[in-house]
Amino acid sequence: MKFPIHCPACDTEMAVVKLSCSSCHTEVSGKFNFPALMRLEPEEQEFVLEFLLNSGSLKEMANKMGKSYPTVRNKLDELIEKLKSF
C-alpha cells in the first residue's frame, strides 16, 4: 500500500499524530512531521535508495537504469533542490 504523504482531499502534507507499539500497545499522541526522506515521492525514495546501493556512483546507476549519465545526475540535482527546500 502506498504510504500517504499528502492529504487525498486537499493535497496538503500530512503529519503523524499517533504512534503505537506493536508489542505492548502503548500509544503516543502528538504531531510528528515526516523526516525529509519520507516526504519524497515513492519513486524519489527509490532513487535515493538506488543511489546508496550503488555507493553513490551515478555512472553505475545510469548503466543499470539504461539511462544516460546527465539524465541521472539531473534527477539527483532536482532531489537535492527539493530536500533543501524542506
Partner: peptide, 11 residues
C-alpha cells in the same frame, strides 16, 4: 535518444 540510451550506447 539522450534519455533513452546509456552513455556508451550514445557514443
Amino acid at each position: 535518444p539522450f534519455e533513452q540510451l546509456t552513455d556508451r550506447q550514445l557514443l
